[in-house]
Computed example of a mutant assay.
Amino acid sequence: MKTCFISGITGQDGAYLARLLLDKGYTVHGGFRRISQAETVRLDKLGILSDVQLHEFDLADANNIFRTIGKVQAHEFYNLAAQSFVGASWEVPVYTSDVNAMGVLRILDSLRTLAPETRFYQASTSEMFGQVAEVPQRESTPFLPRSPYGVSKVFGHFITRNYRESFGMHASSGILFNHESPLRGTEFVTRKITLALARLARGGSEPCVLGNLDAKRDWGFAGDYVEGMWRMLQQDTPGDYVLATGVSLTVRDFANFVAEALGMKLDWNGVGIVEYAIDRKSGKRVIEVSERFFRPAEVDLLLGDPSKAAKVLGWKPRVSVQQLAEMMARADYEDLG
């Protein structure tokens, strides 16, 4: 029986990965940030809270990391913990960098000292591509990040590669494009849309206020992507892999899919900052635009090429973006009932 450790286990990806590994017979340990009360709602929703062993784990605390790694001695370590909200990274850039960059180094160096045979997964991100140098983006595409979050993740990605090449560690990075689910935090744009439109479908009156409707993203289902993480650590040779759907759509497109799933039909009016959408059936103004939700430096287009993951890992996404939008919208609508 294998033992694994998942930092950030209480997050969206951590919960789905924990369920996957439990189903595969792993003993699952997980780390959560030191706060007054662990937020275990996602583990509860998946019905696995009592099946995992939780540890206080703080990427900013080297001693805490060192002691936990020495205690657990996991066969596989999945680093999913991060300050993961791009918008917030401009407000807390130093914290974001310490956690997302130096936190990875603290883990890697502790593993090198205490458990060098442990296989390590680093959660990299498509935000590293930023002002993209080519379309689609693949493992060899240069990184041109446009946020403190993206910059911090580039460090985490390269220090993972450096420890792999310097010390022979089985350390891999998954460059994951946007992956969502009903467990996504409400501050992220997809869940913000599904929750706001579900409230409107339930009789609410407050419109969903968004930023750049023309931003294009490659959206997939988080439950699909965690299988790719696991597959990376089952390979004889470590490496870096893009996980994506290969389809890119605008925020506006995603909102249309959500509206359709909830029985709405959106009519769009205006351009840019004055654009808005009205539900044709109810006449309600359901989406508005506000400058306060625009990023200081925007990432306009992300589109991944997952061909390496398909060829080497045998991985491919199962859920389309339209199915994802419907899944999330229905989950929020039912939860509000």
Rank of each mutant, 00 (worst) to 15 (best):
Gly246Trp: 07
Leu262Asn: 07
Tyr225Gln: 15
Asp214Thr: 13
Ala74Gly: 04
Glu291Asn: 13
Val299Trp: 00
Ala115Leu: 07
Lys24Leu: 15
Gln234Met: 10
Glu187Gly: 09
Val92Gln: 13
Phe294Arg: 07
Tyr163Gly: 08
Thr118Tyr: 00
Glu334Val: 15
Phe32Pro: 15
Ser290His: 07
Lys284Glu: 07
Leu176His: 05
Ile69Asn: 04
Ala74Trp: 00
Ala123Trp: 00
Gln137Leu: 12
Pro296Thr: 05
Glu227Ile: 13
Ile69Phe: 04
Gly130Lys: 03
Thr113Ser: 12
Glu260Ala: 02
Val312Gly: 03
Val209Tyr: 00
Ile9Trp: 01
Lys308Phe: 00
Arg138Gln: 12
Thr68Val: 13
Pro238Met: 05
Met1Asp: 02
Tyr121Glu: 04
Asp236Leu: 15
Arg252Pro: 06
Arg252Gly: 01
Pro136Ser: 08
Leu176Lys: 08
Ser152His: 08
Ser173Phe: 00
Gly304Leu: 08
Val28Thr: 08
Leu336Glu: 08
Ala277Arg: 05
Arg146Ala: 09
Asp98Thr: 14
Ala133Asn: 10
Trp219Gly: 05
Gln137Pro: 12
Gly130Met: 06
Gly304Pro: 04
Arg146Ser: 00
Tyr78Leu: 11
Asp300Phe: 05
Ala60His: 04
Ile107Thr: 01
Lys24Asn: 10
Tyr225Leu: 14
Glu298Lys: 09
Phe158Glu: 10
Ala88Phe: 06
Gly30Leu: 11
Arg202His: 10
Asp23Trp: 10
Arg106Val: 07
Gly228Ser: 12
Gly87Arg: 11
Thr96Glu: 03
Phe293Met: 06
Lys284Asn: 11
Asn256Glu: 11
Val274Thr: 12
Thr10His: 12
Val251Trp: 00
Gly47Phe: 02
Leu111Pro: 07
Val312Ala: 07
Arg184Ala: 08
Gly14Trp: 01
Leu49Ala: 07
Ser166Pro: 10
Leu266Trp: 02
Val99Glu: 01
Tyr241Leu: 11
His170Arg: 10
Gln234Glu: 14
Ala115Asn: 11
